[in-house]
Amino acid sequence: MSVANKSLSKWYKVAGVGIACSLALAGCDRSEKEETPETAEVTEQETEVSENAAATAVSCDDPIVQDRLKSALKNTLNQQAQTLATSYANDAEIGLSSGVVTTKTNGIVIDIQNAATLQAANANGMTTCQASVSMTLPSEDLYQASQVQAANNQPSLQSRLAQDNIRINNNMLVDDAFTYVVGTQGGQIRTRIAGQPALLTVVSEVVASSVYQSALEEQRAQRAAQQAERRRETAQNNNDSQPRSVTPAAPVRPAAPATPPSVNQNNQGSSATTPSTTAPATPEAPKSTPKDESIDMVIIEDENATY
Protein backbone atom coordinates (compact mmCIF):
# COMPACT_ATOMS: atom_id res chain seq x y z
CA MET A 1 0.00 0.00 0.00
CA SER A 2 1.23 3.47 -0.77
CA VAL A 3 1.96 6.07 1.81
CA ALA A 4 -1.01 8.17 0.60
CA ASN A 5 -3.43 5.33 1.13
CA LYS A 6 -2.13 4.68 4.63
CA SER A 7 -2.59 8.36 5.58
CA LEU A 8 -6.15 8.40 4.22
CA SER A 9 -7.01 5.28 6.16
CA LYS A 10 -5.77 6.80 9.42
CA TRP A 11 -7.87 9.91 8.77
CA TYR A 12 -11.00 7.87 8.30
CA LYS A 13 -10.38 6.17 11.58
CA VAL A 14 -9.84 9.47 13.42
CA ALA A 15 -12.86 10.99 11.77
CA GLY A 16 -14.98 7.99 12.70
CA VAL A 17 -13.94 8.22 16.31
CA GLY A 18 -14.68 11.91 16.38
CA ILE A 19 -18.11 11.45 14.86
CA ALA A 20 -18.91 8.68 17.33
CA CYS A 21 -17.91 10.87 20.25
CA SER A 22 -19.96 13.75 18.85
CA LEU A 23 -23.00 11.53 18.55
CA ALA A 24 -22.48 10.19 22.08
CA LEU A 25 -22.19 13.69 23.49
CA ALA A 26 -25.28 14.76 21.61
CA GLY A 27 -27.19 11.79 22.98
CA CYS A 28 -26.14 12.50 26.53
CA ASP A 29 -27.13 16.12 26.25
CA ARG A 30 -30.47 15.15 24.76
CA SER A 31 -31.09 12.67 27.58
CA GLU A 32 -30.40 15.31 30.17
CA LYS A 33 -32.73 17.75 28.44
CA GLU A 34 -35.52 15.14 28.29
CA GLU A 35 -35.23 14.15 31.99
CA THR A 36 -35.20 17.67 33.37
CA PRO A 37 -38.95 18.42 32.82
CA GLU A 38 -39.98 15.11 34.46
CA THR A 39 -37.84 15.77 37.52
CA ALA A 40 -39.28 19.24 37.85
CA GLU A 41 -42.81 17.84 37.64
CA VAL A 42 -42.19 15.32 40.45
CA THR A 43 -40.69 18.00 42.65
CA GLU A 44 -43.70 20.21 42.06
CA GLN A 45 -46.07 17.34 42.99
CA GLU A 46 -44.22 16.61 46.23
CA THR A 47 -44.32 20.28 47.13
CA GLU A 48 -48.05 20.44 46.43
CA VAL A 49 -48.70 17.32 48.59
CA SER A 50 -46.71 18.78 51.47
CA GLU A 51 -48.53 22.08 51.18
CA ASN A 52 -51.91 20.32 51.04
CA ALA A 53 -51.03 18.15 54.04
CA ALA A 54 -50.03 21.20 56.01
CA ALA A 55 -53.18 22.99 54.94
CA THR A 56 -55.46 20.09 55.93
CA ALA A 57 -53.62 19.22 59.19
CA VAL A 58 -55.88 19.11 62.24
CA SER A 59 -54.89 20.73 65.51
CA CYS A 60 -54.28 18.35 68.39
CA ASP A 61 -56.31 20.45 70.83
CA ASP A 62 -59.28 20.92 68.51
CA PRO A 63 -62.52 20.39 70.51
CA ILE A 64 -63.83 18.02 67.86
CA VAL A 65 -60.61 16.00 68.07
CA GLN A 66 -60.94 15.69 71.84
CA ASP A 67 -64.59 14.59 71.59
CA ARG A 68 -63.65 11.95 69.01
CA LEU A 69 -60.78 10.81 71.21
CA LYS A 70 -63.08 10.41 74.23
CA SER A 71 -65.50 8.33 72.17
CA ALA A 72 -62.65 6.15 70.91
CA LEU A 73 -61.40 5.68 74.48
CA LYS A 74 -64.86 4.68 75.76
CA ASN A 75 -65.42 2.18 72.94
CA THR A 76 -61.98 0.59 73.27
CA LEU A 77 -62.26 0.45 77.06
CA ASN A 78 -65.69 -1.21 76.88
CA GLN A 79 -64.50 -3.85 74.42
CA GLN A 80 -61.43 -4.78 76.47
CA ALA A 81 -63.38 -4.84 79.76
CA GLN A 82 -66.13 -7.01 78.23
CA THR A 83 -63.56 -9.55 77.03
CA LEU A 84 -61.79 -9.72 80.40
CA ALA A 85 -65.00 -9.90 82.46
CA THR A 86 -66.35 -12.73 80.31
CA SER A 87 -63.08 -14.63 80.74
CA TYR A 88 -63.17 -14.20 84.53
CA ALA A 89 -66.81 -15.31 84.73
CA ASN A 90 -66.23 -18.40 82.59
CA ASP A 91 -63.31 -19.48 84.76
CA ALA A 92 -65.44 -19.14 87.91
CA GLU A 93 -68.56 -20.59 86.21
CA ILE A 94 -70.77 -17.66 87.12
CA GLY A 95 -73.11 -15.57 85.00
CA LEU A 96 -72.77 -11.88 84.18
CA SER A 97 -75.37 -9.39 83.07
CA SER A 98 -74.69 -8.19 79.53
CA GLY A 99 -75.06 -4.52 80.30
CA VAL A 100 -73.22 -4.27 83.61
CA VAL A 101 -69.81 -3.67 81.99
CA THR A 102 -71.19 -1.02 79.64
CA THR A 103 -72.86 0.73 82.57
CA LYS A 104 -69.59 0.91 84.45
CA THR A 105 -67.54 2.13 81.47
CA ASN A 106 -70.12 4.81 80.71
CA GLY A 107 -69.75 6.02 84.29
CA ILE A 108 -66.00 6.65 83.93
CA VAL A 109 -65.12 10.34 83.58
CA ILE A 110 -62.47 10.99 80.88
CA ASP A 111 -60.58 14.26 80.61
CA ILE A 112 -57.90 15.46 78.16
CA GLN A 113 -55.44 18.21 79.03
CA ASN A 114 -52.25 19.78 77.59
CA ALA A 115 -52.65 18.45 74.05
CA ALA A 116 -49.60 19.16 71.86
CA THR A 117 -48.11 18.12 68.53
CA LEU A 118 -45.61 15.31 68.87
CA GLN A 119 -44.94 14.91 65.13
CA ALA A 120 -46.05 17.25 62.38
CA ALA A 121 -48.45 16.16 59.66
CA ASN A 122 -47.03 13.59 57.26
CA ALA A 123 -47.73 13.26 53.54
CA ASN A 124 -51.16 11.84 54.35
CA GLY A 125 -52.02 14.75 56.61
CA MET A 126 -51.91 12.67 59.81
CA THR A 127 -50.57 14.46 62.88
CA THR A 128 -49.21 12.60 65.92
CA CYS A 129 -50.31 14.19 69.18
CA GLN A 130 -49.61 13.73 72.88
CA ALA A 131 -51.76 14.76 75.83
CA SER A 132 -52.46 14.13 79.51
CA VAL A 133 -55.44 11.78 79.67
CA SER A 134 -57.17 11.02 82.98
CA MET A 135 -59.86 8.49 83.86
CA THR A 136 -61.82 8.82 87.10
CA LEU A 137 -63.41 5.62 88.44
CA PRO A 138 -65.76 5.00 91.37
CA SER A 139 -63.92 4.17 94.59
CA GLU A 140 -65.95 0.95 94.88
CA ASP A 141 -64.50 -0.35 91.60
CA LEU A 142 -60.93 0.31 92.73
CA TYR A 143 -61.59 -1.42 96.07
CA GLN A 144 -63.16 -4.51 94.52
CA ALA A 145 -60.38 -4.75 91.95
CA SER A 146 -57.82 -4.68 94.78
CA GLN A 147 -59.67 -7.54 96.49
CA VAL A 148 -59.52 -9.67 93.34
CA GLN A 149 -55.82 -8.98 92.85
CA ALA A 150 -55.03 -9.83 96.46
CA ALA A 151 -57.05 -13.06 96.30
CA ASN A 152 -55.14 -14.17 93.19
CA ASN A 153 -51.73 -13.12 94.55
CA GLN A 154 -51.33 -10.50 91.82
CA PRO A 155 -49.33 -7.27 92.12
CA SER A 156 -51.19 -4.41 93.75
CA LEU A 157 -52.79 -1.69 91.68
CA GLN A 158 -50.28 0.89 92.91
CA SER A 159 -47.32 -1.18 91.75
CA ARG A 160 -48.93 -1.75 88.35
CA LEU A 161 -49.52 1.96 87.91
CA ALA A 162 -45.97 2.84 88.93
CA GLN A 163 -44.61 0.28 86.48
CA ASP A 164 -46.64 1.77 83.61
CA ASN A 165 -45.84 5.42 84.51
CA ILE A 166 -49.44 6.17 85.45
CA ARG A 167 -50.18 8.57 88.26
CA ILE A 168 -53.00 7.98 90.73
CA ASN A 169 -54.75 10.80 92.54
CA ASN A 170 -57.46 9.45 94.85
CA ASN A 171 -59.59 7.55 92.32
CA MET A 172 -58.20 9.30 89.22
CA LEU A 173 -55.68 7.53 86.98
CA VAL A 174 -53.56 9.82 84.79
CA ASP A 175 -51.29 9.10 81.81
CA ASP A 176 -49.27 12.24 81.02
CA ALA A 177 -47.83 10.84 77.77
CA PHE A 178 -50.89 9.50 76.00
CA THR A 179 -50.31 9.35 72.21
CA TYR A 180 -52.92 9.58 69.47
CA VAL A 181 -53.13 10.46 65.77
CA VAL A 182 -55.50 12.93 64.10
CA GLY A 183 -56.25 13.81 60.50
CA THR A 184 -58.97 14.13 57.89
CA GLN A 185 -60.46 11.46 55.68
CA GLY A 186 -63.21 12.15 53.21
CA GLY A 187 -63.59 15.61 54.69
CA GLN A 188 -64.19 14.14 58.16
CA ILE A 189 -61.90 14.50 61.18
CA ARG A 190 -60.50 11.13 62.24
CA THR A 191 -58.92 10.29 65.58
CA ARG A 192 -57.02 7.08 66.26
CA ILE A 193 -55.36 5.77 69.42
CA ALA A 194 -51.69 4.97 68.88
CA GLY A 195 -50.43 1.59 70.03
CA GLN A 196 -51.65 -0.21 73.16
CA PRO A 197 -51.86 2.44 75.92
CA ALA A 198 -51.17 1.10 79.41
CA LEU A 199 -53.92 3.34 80.81
CA LEU A 200 -56.60 1.50 78.84
CA THR A 201 -55.21 -1.88 79.87
CA VAL A 202 -55.16 -1.06 83.59
CA VAL A 203 -58.60 0.58 83.65
CA SER A 204 -60.21 -2.26 81.70
CA GLU A 205 -58.75 -4.73 84.23
CA VAL A 206 -60.18 -2.66 87.09
CA VAL A 207 -63.65 -2.60 85.52
CA ALA A 208 -63.63 -6.32 84.72
CA SER A 209 -62.39 -7.23 88.21
CA SER A 210 -65.04 -5.07 89.85
CA VAL A 211 -67.82 -6.64 87.77
CA TYR A 212 -66.49 -10.12 88.55
CA GLN A 213 -66.25 -9.43 92.30
CA SER A 214 -69.80 -8.05 92.41
CA ALA A 215 -71.16 -11.11 90.61
CA LEU A 216 -69.21 -13.40 92.95
CA GLU A 217 -70.57 -11.69 96.07
CA GLU A 218 -74.12 -11.83 94.68
CA GLN A 219 -73.76 -15.54 94.00
CA ARG A 220 -72.49 -16.15 97.55
CA ALA A 221 -75.42 -14.21 98.99
CA GLN A 222 -77.87 -16.29 96.93
CA ARG A 223 -76.28 -19.54 98.08
CA ALA A 224 -76.40 -18.42 101.71
CA ALA A 225 -80.08 -17.51 101.36
CA GLN A 226 -80.84 -20.87 99.74
CA GLN A 227 -79.03 -22.76 102.51
CA ALA A 228 -80.91 -20.81 105.17
CA GLU A 229 -84.21 -21.61 103.44
CA ARG A 230 -83.36 -25.31 103.28
CA ARG A 231 -82.47 -25.35 106.99
CA ARG A 232 -85.77 -23.67 107.81
CA GLU A 233 -87.73 -26.18 105.75
CA THR A 234 -85.87 -29.11 107.37
CA ALA A 235 -86.61 -27.81 110.84
CA GLN A 236 -90.25 -27.32 109.94
CA ASN A 237 -90.52 -30.87 108.63
CA ASN A 238 -88.93 -32.27 111.79
CA ASN A 239 -91.39 -30.36 113.96
CA ASP A 240 -94.32 -31.68 111.96
CA SER A 241 -93.18 -35.33 112.29
CA GLN A 242 -92.73 -35.24 116.09
CA PRO A 243 -95.78 -35.74 118.45
CA ARG A 244 -97.04 -32.56 119.87
CA SER A 245 -97.46 -32.20 123.64
CA VAL A 246 -101.04 -31.52 124.71
CA THR A 247 -101.57 -28.97 127.42
CA PRO A 248 -104.05 -30.38 130.01
CA ALA A 249 -107.22 -28.44 130.44
CA ALA A 250 -107.88 -26.69 133.70
CA PRO A 251 -109.78 -28.92 136.23
CA VAL A 252 -113.49 -28.36 136.54
CA ARG A 253 -114.35 -26.59 139.75
CA PRO A 254 -116.90 -28.51 141.86
CA ALA A 255 -120.31 -27.01 142.18
CA ALA A 256 -120.94 -25.17 145.43
CA PRO A 257 -123.49 -26.90 147.76
CA ALA A 258 -126.91 -25.39 147.83
CA THR A 259 -127.67 -23.22 150.81
CA PRO A 260 -130.35 -24.92 153.04
CA PRO A 261 -133.57 -22.96 153.22
CA SER A 262 -134.36 -21.15 156.43
CA VAL A 263 -137.32 -22.00 158.65
CA ASN A 264 -139.24 -19.01 157.37
CA GLN A 265 -138.64 -20.07 153.82
CA ASN A 266 -139.99 -23.56 154.69
CA ASN A 267 -143.06 -22.09 156.27
CA GLN A 268 -143.65 -19.76 153.35
CA GLY A 269 -143.17 -22.55 150.91
CA SER A 270 -145.56 -24.93 152.63
CA SER A 271 -148.42 -23.55 150.64
CA ALA A 272 -146.50 -24.18 147.46
CA THR A 273 -146.49 -27.40 145.54
CA THR A 274 -143.78 -28.97 147.70
CA PRO A 275 -145.50 -30.88 150.56
CA SER A 276 -144.39 -30.08 154.07
CA THR A 277 -142.62 -32.76 156.08
CA THR A 278 -142.99 -33.10 159.86
CA ALA A 279 -139.66 -33.23 161.57
CA PRO A 280 -139.18 -36.45 163.66
CA ALA A 281 -139.82 -36.15 167.36
CA THR A 282 -136.83 -35.94 169.54
CA PRO A 283 -136.75 -38.92 171.97
CA GLU A 284 -137.08 -38.03 175.60
CA ALA A 285 -134.12 -38.55 177.76
CA PRO A 286 -134.49 -41.55 180.16
CA LYS A 287 -135.63 -40.69 183.57
CA SER A 288 -132.93 -40.90 186.10
CA THR A 289 -133.19 -43.17 189.15
CA PRO A 290 -133.46 -41.28 192.40
CA LYS A 291 -130.43 -41.54 194.51
CA ASP A 292 -132.23 -41.22 197.85
CA GLU A 293 -131.27 -44.28 199.96
CA SER A 294 -134.28 -43.87 202.31
CA ILE A 295 -136.55 -45.07 199.60
CA ASP A 296 -136.68 -48.83 199.38
CA MET A 297 -138.33 -49.22 196.02
CA VAL A 298 -139.32 -46.95 193.28
CA ILE A 299 -142.05 -47.87 190.90
CA ILE A 300 -141.83 -46.27 187.49
CA GLU A 301 -144.99 -46.32 185.50
CA ASP A 302 -144.58 -46.68 181.83
CA GLU A 303 -147.47 -45.21 179.95
CA ASN A 304 -146.74 -47.26 176.84
CA ALA A 305 -146.47 -50.60 178.62
CA THR A 306 -149.20 -53.20 178.31
CA TYR A 307 -150.36 -54.93 181.39
Rank of each mutant, 00 (worst) to 15 (best):
E218T: 07
V174L: 06
V211W: 11
S204G: 13
T184A: 14
T201P: 08
T247D: 15
A177H: 10
T234E: 05
N165D: 01
R192T: 12
P197A: 09
V182R: 02
V246Q: 09
I168W: 02
I166H: 00
A208K: 04
G187K: 07
G186D: 15
M172P: 08
L161H: 01
L199C: 05
L200N: 13
E233K: 03
V181L: 11
L216G: 04
R190E: 14
V202S: 10
Q185V: 05
T191K: 05
Q236R: 10
A224T: 07
N169K: 02
T179D: 03
V207N: 14
G183N: 01
P243E: 11
V182L: 05
D175T: 02
A162G: 00
R190V: 15
A235E: 12
N165H: 00
E233D: 05
L161N: 00
V202M: 10
T247N: 14
S209I: 07
A221M: 03
V203A: 09
G183D: 00
G195D: 10
E218M: 09
Q242E: 13
A215T: 08
I166A: 00
V181F: 05
V211F: 10
P243M: 04
Q185M: 06
L216N: 06
Q219M: 13
R192Q: 12
N165T: 00
Q196R: 07
N169E: 02
V174Y: 03
S204N: 09
R231L: 06
Q242W: 06
T191L: 12
R167M: 02
F178V: 05
T191A: 14
S241T: 12
R244K: 11
V203M: 13
